[in-house]
């Protein structure tokens, strides 16, 4: 039971970061919340003993996808309905 506490905390953090991604009006903050979601899900994969998937999720989800989203936000606009 005591070793499940980090697992439960990671699951609650996943739900919280997903809600934050949905509710932020600032798209840059929403992108950073999505990066936090990706990092937490890679931690979850590591807890479930799948280090292969954890490495690829941490590199692609938390690194490259966030960079691509930030580049796209820089090219368009920071808030919804705004065209730079």
């Amino acid at each position: 039971m005591i070793e499940q506490i980090p697992h439960i905390l990671v699951l609650l953090g996943l739900i919280a970061s997903a809600i934050l991604t949905y509710y932020f009006k600032d798209l840059l903050a929403a992108t950073l919340a999505a990066g936090l979601f990706s990092f937490l899900i890679s931690l979850e994969f590591y807890i479930l003993q799948a280090p292969d998937v954890a490495i690829s999720q941490a590199a692609i989800g938390a690194g490259l996808t966030t960079a691509i989203f930030i580049i796209a936000i820089g090219a368009t606009g920071r808030f919804e309905g705004e065209s730079s």
Binding site: P51, D52, I55, S56, A59, I60, G63, L64, A67, I70
Partner: peptide, 21 residues
Amino acid sequence: TPGGGFQGGAVIATGGALVIV
């Protein structure tokens, strides 16, 4: 060890993204 071609290539590409940013 855990890892492989796809994971290692993604790690190197993340380093490239760091330099590009």
